[in-house]
Amino acid sequence: MSDAYREVSRESGVVATTLISDPRPPTPDPLALAPLQEWMQSVVTHPGDVYEAAEAGAIGVDTVVLPSKTLQPIQRVGIYHSMYMLRMIEALEADYEALAYAMGEHAFGHLVREYVQRFPSRSYTLNRLGDHLPEFIAASDLKRKTFLADLARLELAMTHVFEEAEAAPMPPDAIASVPPDRIEALRFTPIPAIRLLTFACNADEVFQAWREERVVEPRRGKTWLAVHRRDYGVYRMPLSQEAFTFLGSLISGETIGSAITKFARRFRRMPRQQELFGWFRDWSEAGLFAAIAITEQER
């Protein structure tokens, strides 16, 4: 039975044969399943209240939805409409707890309303909903947007690290087994669950203070951080700019020798032996690397 037939028969009882012989192309039934779902989604996800949502819809609510003994059609649709935004706020608040606290309930709710219009969920999991929030904040006209975007990037990195694939770290003494004359040819395979972050402010310090229910005011000034996972727990490791640069080179696949060269160009000095020992001790103990290798090219 064609959509055109069903549309007409519902309203006028015209028999099917009349329409089947009609040479005109069938008119899409606005109440067929696909347009009905489009309509309902547009109403449920509308950023205004349910009355504004209904006004904007292509079909009247009363045409689509029946009343109950206690609720009018628009009130019934309103249940889905109100739950949608609550769900979006709840999901993003779970991923961005410190950001939500820093912004306050009202401002965070307003941010989410705007955000999900620009970046609605397109995944089967809510875990991906917040992936664009840092960039959205950075492009906004929010006050303190630099700090808020940094805080969001920190929390997003923690979420990503939490979910990354598991890889056993190499033994902490693995480097000790490498002949000294081959050290510069070493390459490291990082664990997947690691992210390096540069901030324009003290985002990690503010985050830690929030965790401890202390107050630390945001202030400008570059900071560097590694977020990583060990034994299924997420950790944050503040780094100096020098350590961050060196670790970044290793994680991007460069050899120790190449990382040293880059370091020297960047800081106009060679890394001190004590620095290197300290860094590798900390990074190995933290389990940042899954493996080491000396490639043929370096031999």
Partner: peptide, 25 residues
């Protein structure tokens, strides 16, 4: 139920109309 259309996910268990078309579908 259905959870979204046009590539979006509303993350809700949205209701179906119960008729022949939706049954076949």
């Amino acid at each position: 139920c259905w959870t979204g259309v046009s590539g979006r996910n509303v993350h809700d268990l949205l209701p179906m109309p119960y008729n022949e078309e939706s049954l076949r579908h």
